[in-house]
Amino acid sequence: MDHEPFEDTPVSRCQFYRRACGLPAVIDPPGLGRIVVHAGSVWGITMPARLGQAVRAHLHGQGNSVGPIIGHPRSGRWTFLIRPDLGEVDDMRLFAELFRLDVSVARAGAAIALPSPTASAGAIRQWIEPPASAFRPSGVAVVKAIRAWADQMSRRRTRDGDRPSGITEVDG
Protein backbone atom coordinates (compact mmCIF):
# COMPACT_ATOMS: atom_id res chain seq x y z
CA MET A 1 0.00 0.00 0.00
CA ASP A 2 1.49 3.32 -1.08
CA HIS A 3 1.36 6.21 1.38
CA GLU A 4 2.06 9.71 0.23
CA PRO A 5 3.91 11.80 2.78
CA PHE A 6 1.89 14.54 4.42
CA GLU A 7 2.36 17.74 2.48
CA ASP A 8 2.20 21.03 4.33
CA THR A 9 0.23 23.35 2.09
CA PRO A 10 -1.57 26.61 2.80
CA VAL A 11 -4.87 24.67 2.79
CA SER A 12 -3.65 21.97 5.21
CA ARG A 13 -2.00 24.58 7.47
CA CYS A 14 -5.17 26.69 7.47
CA GLN A 15 -7.21 23.62 8.44
CA PHE A 16 -4.76 22.85 11.26
CA TYR A 17 -5.04 26.43 12.55
CA ARG A 18 -8.84 26.15 12.54
CA ARG A 19 -9.25 22.66 13.99
CA ALA A 20 -6.37 22.25 16.43
CA CYS A 21 -5.72 25.87 17.38
CA GLY A 22 -9.16 27.48 17.28
CA LEU A 23 -7.94 30.23 14.97
CA PRO A 24 -10.50 31.42 12.39
CA ALA A 25 -7.86 31.32 9.63
CA VAL A 26 -8.51 31.88 5.95
CA ILE A 27 -6.32 31.96 2.86
CA ASP A 28 -6.31 35.51 1.55
CA PRO A 29 -5.75 35.94 -1.32
CA PRO A 30 -6.11 32.29 -2.39
CA GLY A 31 -3.50 32.45 -5.14
CA LEU A 32 -0.66 33.62 -2.89
CA GLY A 33 -1.15 31.20 0.00
CA ARG A 34 -1.12 33.95 2.65
CA ILE A 35 -2.97 32.82 5.78
CA VAL A 36 -4.71 35.43 7.90
CA VAL A 37 -7.03 35.73 10.87
CA HIS A 38 -9.47 38.61 10.77
CA ALA A 39 -9.37 39.96 14.32
CA GLY A 40 -12.57 39.46 16.23
CA SER A 41 -12.38 36.48 18.56
CA VAL A 42 -8.59 36.82 18.44
CA TRP A 43 -6.63 40.07 18.62
CA GLY A 44 -2.92 40.73 18.29
CA ILE A 45 -0.42 42.94 20.10
CA THR A 46 2.67 43.71 18.00
CA MET A 47 5.90 45.06 19.47
CA PRO A 48 9.66 45.15 18.92
CA ALA A 49 11.24 41.71 19.40
CA ARG A 50 13.34 42.90 22.36
CA LEU A 51 10.19 44.00 24.19
CA GLY A 52 8.47 40.76 23.12
CA GLN A 53 11.26 38.74 24.74
CA ALA A 54 10.84 40.68 27.98
CA VAL A 55 7.05 40.28 27.90
CA ARG A 56 7.34 36.54 27.30
CA ALA A 57 9.83 36.22 30.19
CA HIS A 58 7.58 38.29 32.46
CA LEU A 59 4.52 36.18 31.66
CA HIS A 60 6.49 32.97 32.28
CA GLY A 61 7.89 34.45 35.51
CA GLN A 62 4.36 35.15 36.72
CA GLY A 63 3.41 31.53 36.03
CA ASN A 64 1.33 32.39 32.96
CA SER A 65 1.29 30.67 29.62
CA VAL A 66 2.21 32.97 26.77
CA GLY A 67 0.15 31.46 23.98
CA PRO A 68 1.02 31.85 20.30
CA ILE A 69 3.63 34.41 19.28
CA ILE A 70 4.45 35.25 15.67
CA GLY A 71 7.91 36.50 14.78
CA HIS A 72 8.50 38.90 11.91
CA PRO A 73 12.24 38.42 11.18
CA ARG A 74 12.53 41.18 8.58
CA SER A 75 11.05 43.89 10.80
CA GLY A 76 12.31 42.53 14.11
CA ARG A 77 8.82 42.45 15.65
CA TRP A 78 6.69 39.94 17.51
CA THR A 79 2.89 39.60 17.60
CA PHE A 80 1.20 38.00 20.61
CA LEU A 81 -2.19 36.49 19.77
CA ILE A 82 -4.51 37.43 22.64
CA ARG A 83 -8.06 37.23 23.92
CA PRO A 84 -9.95 40.41 22.99
CA ASP A 85 -10.41 41.61 26.57
CA LEU A 86 -8.87 45.07 26.28
CA GLY A 87 -12.13 46.93 26.79
CA GLU A 88 -10.13 50.13 27.28
CA VAL A 89 -8.28 49.77 23.96
CA ASP A 90 -10.17 52.78 22.60
CA ASP A 91 -8.95 54.82 25.55
CA MET A 92 -6.59 57.38 24.06
CA ARG A 93 -4.29 57.22 27.09
CA LEU A 94 -3.66 53.51 26.56
CA PHE A 95 -3.21 54.03 22.82
CA ALA A 96 -0.69 56.83 23.46
CA GLU A 97 1.14 54.78 26.11
CA LEU A 98 1.53 51.81 23.75
CA PHE A 99 2.38 54.04 20.78
CA ARG A 100 5.31 55.57 22.69
CA LEU A 101 6.65 52.03 23.21
CA ASP A 102 6.20 51.16 19.49
CA VAL A 103 3.36 48.74 20.34
CA SER A 104 0.18 48.36 18.32
CA VAL A 105 -3.06 46.46 18.87
CA ALA A 106 -4.77 44.63 16.00
CA ARG A 107 -8.39 44.68 17.07
CA ALA A 108 -11.73 43.85 15.47
CA GLY A 109 -11.51 43.99 11.69
CA ALA A 110 -7.71 43.97 11.39
CA ALA A 111 -6.00 41.20 9.42
CA ILE A 112 -3.34 39.28 11.34
CA ALA A 113 -1.06 37.29 9.02
CA LEU A 114 0.01 33.86 10.28
CA PRO A 115 3.02 31.79 9.24
CA SER A 116 2.35 29.91 6.03
CA PRO A 117 4.26 27.04 4.41
CA THR A 118 4.79 28.96 1.18
CA ALA A 119 8.44 29.82 0.55
CA SER A 120 7.98 33.58 0.50
CA ALA A 121 5.62 33.71 3.49
CA GLY A 122 7.87 31.43 5.56
CA ALA A 123 10.68 33.97 5.36
CA ILE A 124 8.36 36.76 6.46
CA ARG A 125 6.65 35.16 9.48
CA GLN A 126 7.59 32.33 11.82
CA TRP A 127 6.29 30.94 15.08
CA ILE A 128 8.21 32.02 18.19
CA GLU A 129 5.64 30.11 20.27
CA PRO A 130 3.50 27.94 18.01
CA PRO A 131 -0.18 27.45 18.83
CA ALA A 132 -0.93 24.07 20.36
CA SER A 133 -4.53 24.68 21.38
CA ALA A 134 -7.17 27.38 21.45
CA PHE A 135 -5.45 29.08 24.42
CA ARG A 136 -4.72 32.81 24.12
CA PRO A 137 -3.40 34.91 26.98
CA SER A 138 -5.42 37.81 28.28
CA GLY A 139 -4.67 41.05 26.48
CA VAL A 140 -4.79 42.72 29.90
CA ALA A 141 -1.99 40.39 31.14
CA VAL A 142 0.15 41.20 28.09
CA VAL A 143 -0.36 44.96 28.60
CA LYS A 144 0.58 44.56 32.28
CA ALA A 145 3.78 42.79 31.21
CA ILE A 146 4.54 45.62 28.76
CA ARG A 147 4.01 48.16 31.56
CA ALA A 148 6.27 46.17 33.90
CA TRP A 149 9.04 46.30 31.28
CA ALA A 150 8.49 50.03 30.69
CA ASP A 151 8.61 50.70 34.46
CA GLN A 152 11.82 48.69 34.77
CA MET A 153 13.42 50.59 31.87
CA SER A 154 12.36 53.92 33.39
CA ARG A 155 13.86 52.99 36.80
CA ARG A 156 17.06 51.84 35.08
CA ARG A 157 17.39 55.16 33.19
CA THR A 158 16.75 57.12 36.39
CA ARG A 159 19.25 55.02 38.35
CA ASP A 160 21.86 55.49 35.61
CA GLY A 161 21.48 59.26 35.83
CA ASP A 162 19.34 59.83 32.76
CA ARG A 163 16.12 61.77 33.01
CA PRO A 164 12.93 59.85 32.21
CA SER A 165 11.48 60.89 28.86
CA GLY A 166 9.27 63.93 28.98
CA ILE A 167 11.22 65.62 31.80
CA THR A 168 13.32 68.62 30.90
CA GLU A 169 15.65 70.81 32.89
CA VAL A 170 14.65 74.36 33.56
CA ASP A 171 17.33 77.00 34.25
CA GLY A 172 16.44 79.07 37.22
Rank of each mutant, 00 (worst) to 15 (best):
A108S: 13
P84Y: 02
L98R: 10
S138H: 01
S120V: 12
A111C: 08
G76Y: 08
P115N: 04
Q126R: 15
F95W: 06
L86A: 04
A121N: 13
R155Q: 08
D90R: 15
A108E: 14
V105W: 04
Q152E: 12
S120W: 15
L114V: 01
V142T: 04
V143I: 10
E97Q: 10
L101V: 03
P73F: 07
V89F: 12
F80G: 01
A141N: 10
W149Q: 13
V142D: 03
R83F: 00
R74N: 15
T118M: 10
L86H: 05
G76H: 13
R93I: 06
S138Q: 05
P115L: 08
G139M: 02
L86E: 05
W127C: 01
R155G: 07
A119F: 10
S138C: 02
A134Q: 05
R147N: 00
G87M: 07
I128C: 11
L101W: 07
A96F: 11
A111V: 03
V143C: 03
G122P: 01
M153S: 02
V89K: 15
L101C: 08
G76D: 11
H72P: 11
P115G: 03
V103N: 04
A119T: 07
D85E: 01
Q152D: 09
F99G: 13
D151H: 15
P130E: 10
P84M: 03
A110N: 13
S65E: 10
V143P: 01
I112H: 09
W127E: 03
R77W: 11
P84N: 07
G76P: 08
W127V: 06
I70W: 15
S75K: 14
P131E: 07
P115A: 04
S154F: 00
S116D: 06
A148S: 12
A150Q: 11
K144P: 08
R93F: 10
V105I: 05
I128K: 14
P84L: 00
R77L: 08
W149T: 13
F135R: 05
A119N: 07
A150K: 07
I146S: 01
P117E: 10
D102L: 05
I69P: 06
S104T: 06
V66T: 01
R155Y: 05
S154M: 12
V143W: 02
S104F: 12
A150S: 13
G122S: 14
S120E: 14
A108D: 14
I112S: 08
A113K: 12
A141K: 06
L114T: 00
V142E: 02
Q126T: 14
R136I: 00
G139E: 02
A148Q: 10
I124Q: 14
A134M: 07
V105E: 01
R125Y: 12
Q62R: 13
R136D: 02
L98S: 02
G76W: 09
G109R: 11
R156K: 08
